[in-house]
């Protein structure tokens, strides 16, 4: 009976050991997977951060580009205006002028040019009309004598 009891104990111990070993293996496994999980999460976060960073950088770059285009445009606008002789600022002062105000200046400039063109056309039109009428007026007596002959 004792032997039997011993056998049972031994079996129990063996089983317990088995169980323990199993448990430790499982624990180990869990530990490993947890570790893997956390490291994956870390990696993900890292990637996300990098992405956000890149996006921010891209945005920055785009903004810079827009800015540079805008200033370039402003410069061009201003130069254009200067060339046309409408703007009374130097290129240095130009830095202070926003594109909007430059645009406004250009609109004014165009408006002015249109006005000038119209005025010149009005004068030209009058000149052409009056010259023709003067010719015809002076031709009248010549026509009368032409008919008489």
């Amino acid at each position: 009976a004792e032997r039997h009891a011993l056998q049972v104990r031994r079996a129990l111990v063996a089983r317990r050991r088995e169980l323990l070993a199993e448990l430790s293996v499982r624990k180990e496994k869990e530990e490993a997977s947890r570790r893997a999980e956390s490291s994956r999460r870390e990696r993900d976060e890292e990637a996300k951060r990098a992405k956000a960073d890149a996006a921010r950088k891209e945005l920055e770059r785009a903004r810079k580009e827009i800015e540079s285009i805008r200033t370039e445009e402003a410069k061009k606008l201003a130069q254009n205006l200067i060339k046309r002789g409408g703007l009374k600022v130097s290129v240095n002062e130009m830095e202070d002028l926003s594109t909007d105000s430059l645009m406004r200046l250009q609109v004014e400039q165009l408006e002015k040019e249109k006005k000038e063109l119209n005025e010149r056309l009005r004068i030209a039109s009058k000149r052409i009309d009056h010259t023709e009428r003067a010719y015809r007026k002076e031709e009248l007596p010549l026509l009368a004598s032409d008919y008489a002959t």
Binding site: K126, T131, Y135, E138, L143
Partner: peptide, 24 residues
Amino acid sequence: RTLLTKEQQRQIRRNLREYSRAFD
């Protein structure tokens, strides 16, 4: 063709201001 000679036409253009006054 106009009966005015070249010279007459030139004369008219030169005195356009006077004609213009009347036409205005």
